[in-house]
């Protein structure tokens, strides 16, 4: 699927093509404003910006970023140096994405930006201006787990769980991209997510299982 198609879906108010629905998953941190799009128009974010708590210290190069996180409009002032991962974890209270290397070498920080999986540690927060970010917190529909989440439980595709949010976000993308068509292909396209506990066999089994339930694969 091309990027253009994602954008089109986004414009229709769909979070992504992954069968996700927008939910109020964003936890409010001290320095952010989260506005539910279902109750307020997009312009209200500007008004809400007045209520945003400032950064604890004004950096040399501050930047106002407006983006959508798990379906919620977020407007937040950042230091230009901030990564998407640090924005999520340290400013927005979304700690599902994990820091394992901070250099794009482990995959624990994987989130979706505009429908594609990326390493959030190596993505400047400035770059998600106007974009749509989906994290592990935005994957399930309330208490109903995404089929990939359920499959990870069923196949014990995790141990310590630290790489798991990144694995699952990568795995969902792997299926949607059409790269979950064989065990070999899954292994290749999941190799950007290191599981030091060594749950790889379970991860591959879980993706095969979920792919059939997601209607792709």
């Amino acid at each position: 699927m091309s990027k253009d198609e994602w954008v089109e879906e986004s414009d229709k108010g769909q979070c992504s093509g992954f069968g996700l629905t927008r939910r109020d998953t964003l936890k409010s941190g001290a320095a952010i404003v989260a506005v539910s799009l279902s109750t307020q128009g997009p312009n209200s974010a500007e008004a809400a910006a007045d209520r945003a708590a400032p950064l604890p210290v004004t950096p040399q190069y501050p930047l106002l970023v407006r983006t959508t996180v798990n379906g919620e409009m977020v407007e937040v002032e950042i230091d230009t140096r901030t990564s998407v991962l640090d924005l999520l974890r340290e400013r927005l209270g979304l700690t599902g994405a994990k820091k394992g290397c901070d250099h794009g070498q482990c995959g624990a920080c994987t989130v979706h930006v505009d429908g594609r999986r990326v390493a959030s540690c190596l993505t400047l927060a400035a770059k998600v201006e106007g974009g749509e970010v989906v994290t592990i917190e935005g994957l399930s529909d309330g208490d109903n787990l995404h089929p990939m989440q359920q499959a990870f439980i069923d196949h014990d595709a995790l141990q310590c769980g630290y790489c798991t949010p990144g694995q699952i976000m990568a795995a969902v993308a792997c299926v949607v991209e059409g790269n979950a068509t064989s065990r070999e292909r899954i292994r290749e396209y999941m190799s950007g997510n290191i599981c030091r506990c060594g749950a790889y066999a379970g991860i591959v089994a879980a993706i095969e299982d979920a792919a059939s339930k997601m209607g792709r694969g």
């Binding site: 794009g104 999986r117 790269n179």
Partner: peptide, 12 residues
């Protein structure tokens, strides 16, 4: 292309 880095990095 696909043997470089990981799909996450190739998307970026």
């Amino acid at each position: 292309l696909w043997k470089a880095a990981s799909q996450q990095l190739r998307n970026m």
